[in-house]
Simulated scan of single mutants.
Amino acid sequence: MNAVKLNVGLDVGSTTVKMIVLDEQENIIFKDYRRHFSDIKNTVTQLLEEVKSVLGDAKLKFMVTGSAGLSLAESLGVTFIQEVVACTKAIKKYAPETDVAIELGGEDAKIMYFGTTVEQRMNGTCAGGTGSFIDQMSSLLRTDALGLNLLAQSHKEIYPIASRCGVFAKTDVQPLLNEGASKADIAASVFQAVVNQTISGLAAGKPIRGKVAFLGALCLFYLNLKNVLLLP
């Protein structure tokens, strides 16, 4: 009897680890998403232990991606695929009508323009407008990213907040808190700052038009705040 074949994808990012297992029909039979708190080795080990019962004696096609995945792929002896390339291939396969794709991770951000050729851009050393930025701003409001999302849904006003640097953003947020500004308004302003950074820093002024695909956990907030986060 032919062995069952499974596709295993492991994304080791700057702040989280994600794993998915697909059967030959691309049905999801396992998925998990967790923060590694800089303890990548133990987090991945625990995840692999948990997935063992699902994998059984199946023949595996194992691929690793993510900003912290290269050394892990080398140690496991499996294929590594650069994350921008992985995102681009996934978009072309599952959403081929996409004109622009934006992916915001824990400490990096990517934008892909699709057309006759694919233009890919990634942020540099600065983590402004990424998940870490959201975490820093959430802590100022004594909540987490999900709490920030809930707060923002009842906003009434948007304040300018620096998006390129978390330190600069704090110098904008703290006076607002001291002056009694609504936490809902500040939360929405933080998300607007992420959009501003995406447009000015990542897109660098190039128009974001047509059908836009959002990738990454941070972009989930866009779905609930589409009336707040205004892309041109």
Results as ranks from 00 to 15, higher is better:
194 V>N: 02
171 T>A: 01
157 E>K: 13
125 T>V: 14
214 F>R: 06
153 Q>Y: 02
133 F>N: 08
223 L>V: 13
219 C>H: 07
140 L>Y: 07
216 G>I: 03
140 L>D: 10
157 E>V: 09
133 F>P: 05
138 S>Q: 01
221 F>Q: 14
124 G>P: 04
153 Q>W: 06
167 V>K: 10
214 F>L: 14
124 G>M: 10
145 A>F: 00
132 S>E: 11
164 R>N: 11
162 A>I: 05
185 D>L: 08
193 A>W: 04
195 V>E: 09
128 G>S: 09
209 R>M: 13
162 A>S: 14
153 Q>G: 07
162 A>Y: 07
181 A>L: 01
210 G>L: 04
182 S>D: 15
184 A>T: 05
170 K>W: 00
219 C>Y: 10
121 R>N: 11
178 N>R: 12
141 L>R: 09
217 A>Y: 12
156 K>S: 15
115 G>D: 12
153 Q>A: 06
142 R>T: 12
199 I>C: 11
179 E>S: 12
212 V>Y: 02
148 L>H: 01
137 M>T: 06
185 D>T: 10
168 F>L: 13
118 V>F: 13
126 C>N: 01
193 A>Q: 01
142 R>P: 08
129 G>L: 01
164 R>S: 12
167 V>P: 04
180 G>Y: 07
144 D>M: 10
109 A>G: 15
153 Q>R: 11
133 F>K: 01
176 L>F: 02
167 V>M: 07
186 I>G: 10
202 L>E: 05
116 T>V: 12
187 A>N: 10
215 L>E: 04
193 A>H: 01
157 E>T: 13
162 A>E: 03
226 K>A: 14
178 N>P: 09
172 D>F: 02
138 S>W: 03
159 Y>Q: 02
222 Y>G: 03
177 L>E: 10
168 F>Q: 02
155 H>W: 02
168 F>C: 09
133 F>C: 05
136 Q>G: 15
